[in-house]
């Protein structure tokens, strides 16, 4: 009905001139990029003497955010589909443990496969319960968060599992290719693949449509149960890879790796402009959300704030950014 008639402006077919286009340009959509640049410039000036702009420090920011970025790519799909996955941090921890133990037992390739299998198993259980039984993902993954971390602690009796395989440690963490840390390449790989699939494939469009209006998606012939299953499966697998990245960097598997990462990943996704209610989202935005968090962490440390102060400032900046980005 004519509920929407107050915007008949938009129904006129007159070609808009440039000024109008500028006016229509919704800066809120780009708030993450604006925020990123503002924070970057701010730290660059303020912390110039502390070496903020040095190549080593900048690479460090990338390296430190790499695992969060990888997890957040998977999380983008889940949130864009109007679901949530709280189990990613624990899944990473469990995967690091399983990988480490399997490498010790059977060697490199079985170790990697076992790590991935952990992600597949967790993601399939999450997805199955959500899509087949219709249990809200918040509850399913909240439960899974405890199960995964508990299982990881249980099988290892809380002990770290050292990884002595150098190939694994090089590929999944400490290695460099030229000047570029391997971790950065891993996150670049996931961001690139995630961005293309979400915006340029049938599956990506169907994820967004399912998140935007599940009923309409169903009526359009999209198997929304399968889509919900798939996004949670993806999230689990991606989290298990992040767990292996932890394992490679720290040369061990431990149940604590990844603790709390679910919240950082969710913050990165929302900062990146993905709607918490589903239906819209971009992986590139998520990358910048994750980098912004890393930037803030790094800057606050260089500025000499202690960790309690860092938490307060970081929280305030995140709230501010999300408040600016929200729709009117």
């Amino acid at each position: 009905m004519s509920k929407t008639a107050p915007q008949p402006v938009l129904e006129t077919s007159a070609s808009p001139n440039f000024g109008e286009m500028l006016k229509r340009l919704d800066w809120r959509r780009y708030v993450i990029y604006i925020g990123f640049v503002v924070v970057f410039v701010f730290f660059a000036i303020l912390l110039h003497d502390q070496g903020f702009l040095s190549a080593v420090n900048l690479l460090n920011i990338f390296r430190q955010t790499a695992t969060i970025t990888v997890i957040a790519v998977g999380m983008t799909y889940v949130i864009a589909c109007a679901e949530i996955d709280l189990s990613v941090g624990s899944t990473a921890g469990l995967s690091s443990v399983v990988t480490a133990m399997a490498i010790a037992q059977w060697g490199l390739v079985p170790g990697i496969l076992a790590g991935l299998a952990t992600g597949v198993a967790v993601g399939a259980v999450n997805g199955g319960l959500v899509s087949l039984l219709g249990i809200p993902s918040f509850l399913v993954t909240l439960g899974m968060m405890g199960i995964a971390v508990g299982a990881a602690q249980w099988v290892t009796a809380s002990a770290p599992q050292p990884i002595l395989d150098d190939t694994f440690n090089t590929v999944f963490g400490s290695g460099n290719i030229g000047p570029v840390p391997g971790l950065v390449l891993w996150s670049a790989l996931f961001v690139a693949a995630g961005a293309v699939v979400l915006s340029r494939t049938k599956f990506g469009r169907q994820v967004l449509a399912t998140g935007g209006n599940r009923t309409a998606a169903d009526f359009t012939g999209i198997n929304t149960k399968r889509i919900k299953f798939q996004v949670l499966l993806i999230s689990g697998v991606v989290a298990s890879v992040a767990g292996m990245l932890y394992a490679g960097r720290l040369q061990s598997g431990r149940f604590q790796w990844g603790t709390g990462d679910e919240l950082s990943a969710i913050a990165a996704v929302i900062l990146g402009g993905t709607s918490l209610f589903g239906g819209s989202g971009t992986v590139i935005g998520t990358l910048f959300g994750s980098l912004l968090i890393g930037l803030i962490n790094n800057g606050l440390i260089l500025a000499g704030l202690d960790s309690s102060q860092q938490q307060v400032v970081r929280g305030a900046i995140i709230i501010l950014a999300v408040a600016l980005a929200r729709k009117k």
Partner: peptide, 9 residues
């Protein structure tokens, strides 16, 4: 609105 369209898209 509910079944035919994804309104925000």
């Amino acid at each position: 609105r509910a079944q035919g369209l994804v309104l925000e898209h």
